[in-house]
Amino acid sequence: MSADNLNNGDVIIEVKDLHKKFGDLHVLKGINETIKKGEKVSIVGPSGSGKSTFLRCLNLMEEPSGGEIYFERKLLNDKHTDINKHRQKMGMVFQHFNLFNNLTIIDNIMLAPVKIGVKNLRKERKEKVKALSKQIKALQEEKKTLLSELKNLLADAKANNTEYVENVETSDRIKVIDEKLAELIADKKAVKGNIIKNLSGDKKTVKAQAKEKALQLLERIGLSDKADKYPSTLSGGQKQRVAIVRALAMNPDVMLFDEPTSALDPEMVGEVLELIKEVADDGMTMVIVTHEMGFAKEVSTRVLFMDNGNVLEQNTPKEFFENPQNPRLKEFLAKVL
């Protein structure tokens, strides 16, 4: 690892000169931002300033019009990047919860872990078979070369009427290759056989693990009794708490929140903020767009002020709220506090 990499070891998201346009509307105007592991970054600013758009660019829910977004040092807005893989590590919580209406609460939580778990298992197997095939092919090639070498030697000996001296090294190597080949071919057969035999079994294992985890998460938020209910039977606060643990079920490295309490009745805001705070205390890296200034002050390690597509100011919560510099921020805080 280079020195540069070591220095950036704890950077989890890096945004360089991010632009976003909707048609003629220039919503993000060149944002640069680095978010480190464990940081809790709050984003505040007036309506329409581009907060949601910025957040949604981080996991490519919006395609950036320009600039670069790195997540765990991988460039996300590149057509060769498997965005689904990276999104699994970036949980997102929406203003309107977006629980899957056609699934029970527990299935809401289990859906992605099961679907993705099974898919990955299959992929893993396929890749294993591919790797084995490659090894087998390489060995077969080598054997072929060695055999033709031997043949040439023999022919030479015959042509020159000299005595043929067996090349011990080569024939030993061929023996080794034969043994190894037999082994690899047996391996490949076993893995292939397992794919067919174990498909349903694998699915069951993945499902059982996902279920256990989902039940734990429901227990944590005190909604175990709702496991088999549908979203329409839950209160807003309950829905949002389920949405949060649904994202947590994927073991994300970062959580993105877009005004998680804005659609809630006032009496339900507390329970949701409480859960977010708990997640924060567990060390999760978080980016939160919020209008709850008190919450931003309490939970964040850093607060950003966005206005008109730019980040105009950022600071520790204490400095940010007690000693704002930018006149636009002063104006904004005067209005909301």
């Binding site: 996991n59 829910m61 689904n84 893989k85 990276h86 999104r87 699994q88 590590k89 970036m90 949980g91 997102m92 929406f94 977006n98 629980l99 899957f100 056609n102 699934l103 859906l111 992605a112 679907k115 993705i116 949405a243 649904r246 994202a247 994927m250």
Partner: peptide, 17 residues
């Protein structure tokens, strides 16, 4: 959006949701 944000593919989201 919720499905895609979890890392499900467009096809998986279509099929299950």
């Amino acid at each position: 959006e919720a499905g895609r944000s979890l890392g499900l593919s467009g096809m998986q989201v279509y099929q299950s949701i």
